[in-house]
Write a protein that binds this DNA or RNA. Structure first.
Lengths: 347, 347
DNA sequence: CTGAAAGCGCTTACAG
DNA sequence: CTGAAAGCGCTTACAG
């Protein structure tokens, strides 16, 4: 798109114009080449009425010859353009992410919104991506994690809805809260006779995750002495590795609560390989409620979250802020979606 | 974005301007409110030099008060804007899709491109989505399937790269070709003593998929009398259902070749439930090579495709066409990426 | 059916 | 440090 000043009008050679000379053909170039006015070009390009077939054909031919493509900016400036939503996610390869994205896309599309996606996990230049996202969209929704404040700056005036914030006080946010479900889960573990649970967190020894803290606390309040294991990545591989290590110890743990479903899938795999029966010897629970969990054996019990609901709340906040119906800050722009315990076979 | 004419300059009340009156504040409104010129507003908003701290603060305050957000069109028109890629996919909930999207995103980001995604599978108004995608992007890549020709029209002058086309002759395209891998697979089945293979296609009785045809043909040429089963959806559930039906028959099939990995996962699950040992009783093979396949037990053998390679070729074509280095049609804009047999435990 | 005029909202030189 | 002028590429009334 960017480029030096455009060609002087006529350029009658058959080469794709604008390619080597730098700079794309504009409506003016096409008008000149076809010997018509600008609005006649507009009529031809946009299939509008009020143009003779012959003229239209001539204009289209000129456009094709010059490799003319209308500028979305020129057009957007006058038409107002479409609504654009920006979505910031962490890793499209974790099945949770497309599940969420899919919900956002579907709901956004229903309201005529387009969605631009930025996967900041894969990116070396995440800051640039977020800034670019902001400059192309009307509002941004997403997982901001620890970079929230910096990205808030980069986004400038673009309203932002944070998903599952690490900490208060975000501006607008949808909290995804496992607290209630964790209590129900802890009760379930007691009821099924679990003695030695371990919490497999995705975190570092310095910073246990909120999720991990809630689990540890709920277990301790019920008289357990739960073990806390920190896994560096929230992947199946990492979940499997840590599990293998856990199972090698003398003292037999009988429940593993993983940070997310993908890790829990790794846990199940490691148990299988070690000849440990799930749920008889060890109960396994994940978090997220991915459909994927019912494809493995045993099927995965999990703290499920309704991602349609998350998407709906986020979109509602975003559109509300845009319409000026909501403040940019405060309690009115905080929503909460809660996990619920989904028992399948593994626990 | 769209809306009636904007406010007359001054609007000193503390309400978020432009919200109820319709129409957003422009740079002119902010300039008037702050008592400065337009380019001073530009300087303040964009953190440029050549502006006093006091003026900057005053401008920013006015902008905040008026809820001013610069138009991306006004800016894009003069700056040239960022490069935007459109990606059309079929269902983000099939793990194949985010895997591909992830590769496209990563490679695109490396070159400073942003990506807009349209999931046409979920959409009731897919045509509108594709058209919107075209109007917001410089080039479109994606799965077009049977709607290719219609969407070609809608896209107008926006160059398009088709992924895995159903049929010739597309314009620019990346073919994803399982033919070689299917031959290798068929040899493998012979070598391992398979007698009665069944091809579980995602298709209707009227239209067997290319993939299905290739499999049937390769098997027949080796003397097999393969059975062809049509599953309506390419999902795990559908794969499981059809498998249950297959296993209930008297004559024992000893290999199931699924249309894709997700279906194959359903096949594995159905086998497990029916007490059929894989691979001893039945060998199972999928197509795609999803990492997911190594999380189940037994791990899934598959015809894998390198999605990084697919993304790379597609992007290469797209950027080449945009730069005018490639023709819009013909052999030069056709690339092929081939599957390869990836043996894990299930076959 | 066609074109001259005005304007969308912003930034980039250029003058002061 | 600040502003008047010009222009980015397009479309929307309006006249002919």
């Amino acid at each position: 798109m960017a480029g030096p000043p455009r060609l002087t009008p006529q350029h009658p050679d058959p080469l794709p114009a604008g390619s080597t000379t730098g700079g794309r053909a504009t409506i003016i170039d096409v008008a000149a080449a076809a010997g018509v006015s600008r609005q006649t070009v507009t009529r031809a390009m946009n299939g509008m009425s009020g143009i003779s077939a012959a003229t239209k054909e001539r204009v289209l031919a000129a456009a094709e010859r010059l490799d003319y493509r209308p500028s979305r900016f020129g057009r957007g400036l006058v038409t107002g353009g479409d609504h654009q939503l920006g979505l910031v996610v962490n890793d499209l390869r974790n099945p949770y992410t497309p599940q969420l994205a899919s919900a956002v896309f579907r709901l956004a599309a229903e309201q005529g919104w387009n969605v631009m996606l930025a996967d900041v996990d894969l990116a070396s230049d995440a800051d640039r991506m977020v800034q670019a996202l902001g400059s192309q969209t009307d509002v941004v929704i997403g997982y901001l994690g620890s970079r929230r404040d910096r990205w808030r700056e980069l986004l400038g005036t673009v309203p932002m809805v944070e998903l599952d914030p690490y900490s208060e006080p975000p501006t607008a946010a949808v909290w995804i809260d496992p607290a209630d479900a964790v209590e129900v889960l802890a009760d379930h573990l007691v009821a099924t006779g679990v003695r030695h649970p371990v919490v497999l967190d995705n975190s570092s020894p310095e910073h246990t995750s909120v999720r991990g803290i809630l689990m540890m606390d709920a277990l301790q309040r019920r008289g357990y002495l739960p073990e806390l294991v920190h896994a560096e990545h929230g992947t199946a591989e990492c979940g499997a590795e840590e599990t293998t290590r856990i199972l090698e110890r003398r003292r037999r743990q009988d429940a593993i609560l993983a940070f997310n479903d993908v890790m829990a899938l790794g846990v199940l795999q490691a148990c299988r390989r070690a000849g440990v029966d799930v749920p008889r010897d060890v109960r396994v629970v994940g978090v997220d409620g991915l459909p994927l969990g019912s494809l493995v054996s045993p099927t995965l019990s999990t703290l499920a979250v309704d991602l349609d609901e998350v998407a709906r709340e986020a979109l509602d906040l975003a559109l509300g802020m845009l319409a000026g119906e909501l403040p940019r800050q405060g309690d009115a722009v905080q929503r909460t979606v809660r996990h619920r315990l989904l028992l399948r076979e593994s626990a």
